[in-house]
Amino acid sequence: MDLAALAACIANPGCVVTQATSGFIVGMLLFLVAAGLTLIFGVLKVINFAHGAFYMLGAYFAFALYQSSGSFALALIGGAAGSGVAALACERLLISRVYGGSVLMQLLVCYALVLILDDVVRMVWGNDFLSMGMPAQFQVPPLFVAGGVVPPFYLFLIAVALAIAVALGLALARTRLGKVVRAAAHNPQMVSALGINTGLIYGLVFALGGALAGMAGALAAPVRSLTPGMGFSILIDSFIVTVIGGMGSVAGALVGALLIGFIRAFGSVGFPLFTDGIMYMVMVAVLVTRPTGLFGRNAG
């Protein structure tokens, strides 16, 4: 522990800006992954243990598209769409078979998906760390805010993720499809009795979750190194986010993700080896005081 370093950082505006930007980056990427996870849980009642794999797929798809086309915009769209399609295939072919089954079966099917997808990526792209590099349009000098360094790509990443967060929130609250999705989360039998194809809704929600994770992976590709196991650490973090925020709550995912992002960013200054420990302690504290999470309804 080096609390003196943490205090020195907080006293220095430059350091605060740098760490806060990095906290936003981690937090917004986590939000994209956790939002899908929490939506899937809210509607399908399935804990998607394979969610990290779609994040990984998005990153690798974006990497491949950027290498072949040179367009980062295409890489982003392709990463999200590719992951969405992969998620839809997994849901229709495998996960839909264990709906309503025991949690154990669902966890195992997802665990198998993680093993298989990690290995597929290893076969196609190899086991080494890959680096996509910063896209050409973002290879510009960083901005300096109060003495802190803010690369323009970070601002782009935060803006895209925020736009998605707003769009997702509005779509769920205002559109007809959003209302159907919320109704299906609440009472699938009733929705089905009203003549709505719940299987289709489930598939759509799962694909949307996969696409959000894929978008996160594609956005992360320029700033993170790519490796076949990269989905797991973000998966654990997004579980913590959803548990803190409340399973099924998108707003909770945003708050939880930013909280974890800031713990990670400032923890790396003060207690680099124990940031994980702090996160788990925060999660346990939330669960003990509010078992359904900060924004969770009492649905359990």
Binding site: L94, R97, V98, M105, L108, V109, Y111, A112, L113, V114, L115, I116, D118, D119, V120, R122, M123
Partner: peptide, 15 residues
């Protein structure tokens, strides 16, 4: 590629 083999075995048992 032991992951693929183990994954398929798990799927066989679970599904």
């Amino acid at each position: 590629h032991d992951g693929i083999v183990l994954g398929v075995v798990i799927l066989f048992f679970a599904i």
